[in-house]
Design a protein around this nucleic acid. Structure first.
Lengths: 349, 349
DNA sequence: TTGAAAGCGCTAACAC
DNA sequence: GTGTTAGCGCTTTCAA
């Protein structure tokens, strides 16, 4: 027994052609479902494919077509993190993420395009990532970037790879993106709190280096101002439950009379609920709470959260659509698609 | 202006060789860091690479090396799900998942191996997946399979692709896997509850078509029996918080005197806590609760959970190690690695 | 409608 | 230590 016996070569087009008694070109046409192949020959070839167990070699195919049939989903996060750091936990644990993937897959799968998940949480991994992408592993990139001064969007533009962002970039650069009307969403939360007659409203914002956080904070303050509330104190969180809990405590210490809260996402709202609960403050009795996202955290918390819903799946699907379009065009036009949020009323406000 | 001007060809080895005034082979040697290249020539070539902005074409490289430098992380789930179904949400939301990815990346990244995330939640997507894998997109696969009669493990064996499972397969087949000593973990929970003097202990199990669920249930019952408790009622959940909440209600209705609970994972324990809270039952005062996983849910819940910790990151890293080893060997030996769980004591028991 | 043949860009013998 | 050369398996003109 020799090594050659143990590792049989996978069948190639050539093998199938030999079995079917036709040329490689014809087999290729059948496999790729090109028209202009005689029905009878097609059938013979298909039988030969089945018999040999032929599967096309993707590398060979990409080499000539210059297409891989895959796109990357890149999740990028600020430097200064390590593996011990809960970065990955935070990203994947965020109920947000599953819905994004779900929306993307729903448009990719029918078109037989695959999703490659890539993470970039250090500068090292970021340049490694760019190298990987430039090597032609994927046809395009969907980028979820979680902080403002992320160099990745610009790097991707430079690389020439079709790219779509999940949010408006923090600085104006020529790149397509999908977003929700953040101001409008924050306004919805403000209106709800004002309607309930809240007099002392505060907010827990997201990290202020993210455009989404800025927009939600500004949008909320502007809307409260329209309701006559000139001053809305805020504490900055980082979108985790822990940070929400801590921020709520801080707010309570400084403004004991708070009777309304807007948290920039559901996870922080959930944390706030915990802090409120620990101090024996009734929700919505003494403090009304509104979240943002309508994630699974909204229904899991006690009481269930009134929250601003963004159509995450639809937005993610739009990202994928946009990317696929960009890949097919030669000179894609930079495009934005903005979705409208809605208010979902539950028990917390 | 012609189309040719707009889409300049990416530089190839040939281009670099011309600029550096050497042969393609030499450039290849430099790029791949092969020894036996004169220091001075190496520098000239590196300069040429920088000047041309050369990046190796992965397809061409794979075609000859028969290596892709990527491995797949496949998450497989039972049929009968659709996109509206929270499958994706469930998988990614599970705090467990982020830690798995984190552990895997920690060994893949230093070896410059990439992770391709793939989902298989319908039979269609399962065969599509196998096709994709057989096309040589990846060098091996890490499989996280969430139900018993999953055909994927066998399909993968058949495909000849190096594969490592995250759990012992439900039927004995020749495939490598990593697991935690489930019996031991469940025994730890039982010991804790028995030590506290619980007299009427119940358990919420995972889906009974999963070996892990079976092992935890059996292990728990055996250990309780050793403490003299002949009968331990159980209700089946599906590892979600909701199912835990519901199961707890059911248990309470049928056995009002319950004073100890073992939930087969933290998420269900958290749900149980909610149900207990809703009925005004104090934890751990009237009912002591032990979870399993030591996920972030354990610290997020009120009270924080006493729970069985599995070293998820280490286990995931071991999976990646094992897979890389399999990829390097020609005839890998089927291997198992079992990790020891520990008890983490917090407030709930 | 089918076949012949020319590469796609790279690595790896094998010479020199 | 370096260059020459033969493919890897596939798609795609171009002829027939």
């Amino acid at each position: 027994m020799t090594a050659d016996d143990d590792i049989p070569r996978a069948p190639t087009l050539e093998d199938v052609a030999r079995v079917a008694g036709v040329s490689r070109a014809t087999v290729s046409r059948v496999v790729n479902d090109t028209r202009n192949v005689d029905r009878r020959i097609r059938e013979v070839v298909q039988a030969a494919v089945a018999q040999t167990g032929y599967v096309p070699n993707q590398a060979a195919r990409s080499l000539v077509t210059r297409r891989t049939g895959s796109v990357a989903l890149v999740v990028s996060e600020a430097e200064h993190r390590s593996f011990d750091d809960p970065f990955l936990g935070r990203v994947f644990t965020d109920p947000f993420f599953g819905r994004v993937v779900s929306g993307i897959i729903s448009v990719l799968r029918p078109r037989a395009v695959n999703l490659v998940l890539m993470l970039a949480e250090t500068n090292d991994s970021r340049s490694q990532l760019i190298d990987y992408l430039r090597q032609g592993h994927v046809d395009g990139v969907l980028l979820i970037s979680t902080h403002a001064d992320d160099p990745l969007p610009s790097m991707l533009i430079e690389s020439g790879l079709p790219t779509v962002l999940s949010r408006r970039p923090s600085t104006p650069i020529p790149i397509s993106y999908v977003d929700v009307a953040q101001h409008v969403g924050a306004g919805l939360a403000a209106d709800r709190l004002a309607e309930r007659g809240c007099q002392q409203v505060a907010t827990i914002s997201g990290p202020m280096d993210m455009p989404a956080s800025q927009d939600r904070l500004n949008g909320f303050r502007e809307a409260m101002a329209r309701h006559g509330h000139a001053f809305v104190p805020s504490v900055e969180g980082n979108f985790t439950q822990d940070s929400g809990e801590q921020a709520m405590r801080e707010l309570l210490d400084r403004y004991p009379d708070i009777d309304g809260l807007f948290a920039a996402n559901d996870l922080m709202a959930q944390g706030a609920l915990l802090a409120l609960h620990d101090r024996g403050i009734a929700v919505p009795g003494r403090v009304a709470v509104v979240g943002f996202d309508d994630s699974s955290a909204a229904t899991a918390s006690r009481p269930p959260l009134t929250t601003v819903r963004q159509p995450i799946e639809d937005m993610a699907a739009a990202m994928a659509d946009l990317l696929l379009a960009h890949i097919d065009e030669r000179q894609p036009r930079v495009t934005s698609r903005i979705f409208e949020p809605t208010l979902v009323v539950r028990d917390s406000a």
